[in-house]
């Protein structure tokens, strides 16, 4: 038996918004620790991972691990039927269930909606991502700043270079109409309201497709801050963490390299 109840549907709605433009379908792996998924986009250059830890839920029960193959567009359609303050309960049989049940209940518990989502068999490749990668540069910034930088730059062109030196990050773009760049310095005072922190072991300069960096802005409502981790020649890791260590959405994006 799998049963998980979120106090407010907002949490899962936001998480799904952050991943549904990148992946069409994925296995939601349920274990005693929580709910997680990882999936690549069609060209296999971007990996999205998501975890909702058991403590994110008001009720969480998973008697034995199960994997629910879900079409992201279908689950999003069903969750549109939940008001943001409604609670969401997901129930599935752990013995080869062919559907999962979604129950939405309003705050006064006098309106209860039931939906059944058909599950799918999905063959997915699972990549092993090292947990404690030793990154050359890590930058943390308010997620609203992330949105502004990459929504602005990706309008100019799709080739975006991130260069991080001591205390400064430079984001630049080259496009058909011209080019642009933006420098972001580490904020001075620790009590700054919207801090930017930059940790550099070695300066790094890498290029990524703006289309993806802009798509990741869909995760901005999840988190006040975002962390970008870079190592020369390796995929960029971007993390949006849910409040109270309830979980996270992470993206891993292959760099553009000279052929």
């Amino acid at each position: 038996m799998f049963e998980a109840k979120l106090t407010e549907s907002t949490t899962i709605k936001r998480v799904l918004d952050a991943i549904k433009d990148l992946i069409q379908q994925a296995n939601f792996d349920c274990s005693a620790d929580g709910l997680s998924l990882q999936a690549m986009d069609t060209p296999h250059v971007c990996l999205t991972t998501m975890t909702l830890r058991s403590q994110a839920f008001e009720v969480y029960r998973c008697d034995r691990p199960l994997s629910m193959g879900i079409n992201l567009s279908s689950i999003s359609k069903i969750l549109k039927c939940a008001a943001s303050k409604d609670s969401v309960k997901i129930v599935a049989d752990d013995e080869g269930a062919d559907c999962a049940e979604f129950i939405f209940e309003n705050e006064s518990a006098d309106r209860i909606a039931h939906f059944e989502l058909k599950l799918m068999d999905i063959d997915s490749e699972h990549l092993s991502i090292p947990e404690d990668s030793d990154y050359q540069a890590i930058i943390s910034m308010p997620s609203a700043e992330y949105r502004r930088i990459f929504s602005d730059l990706s309008i100019i062109g799709d080739t975006i270079t991130i260069e991080i030196n001591k205390n400064t990050a430079c984001f630049s773009v080259e496009g058909d109409i011209g080019n642009g760049s933006l420098n972001l310095a580490q904020t001075d005072s620790a009590d700054e309201k919207n801090p930017v922190t930059i940790n550099v072991k070695e300066p790094v300069k890498m290029t990524f497709p703006g289309k993806y960096l802009n798509t990741f802005t869909k995760a901005v409502p999840i988190s006040e801050f975002v962390t970008l981790c870079l190592t020369d020649g390796n995929p960029l890791a971007i993390e949006f963490s849910l409040p109270d260590e309830a979980g996270f959405v992470r993206y891993f994006l292959a760099p553009k390299i000279d052929q």
Binding site: M40, H44, C46, H126, L127, T159, N234, P235, F252, I257
Partner: peptide, 14 residues
């Protein structure tokens, strides 16, 4: 010309 390598060139498949 720039290109992207697929992620399985960076990470191992489980």
């Amino acid at each position: 010309r720039q290109c992207q390598r697929i992620l399985s060139t960076y990470y191992t498949l489980e």
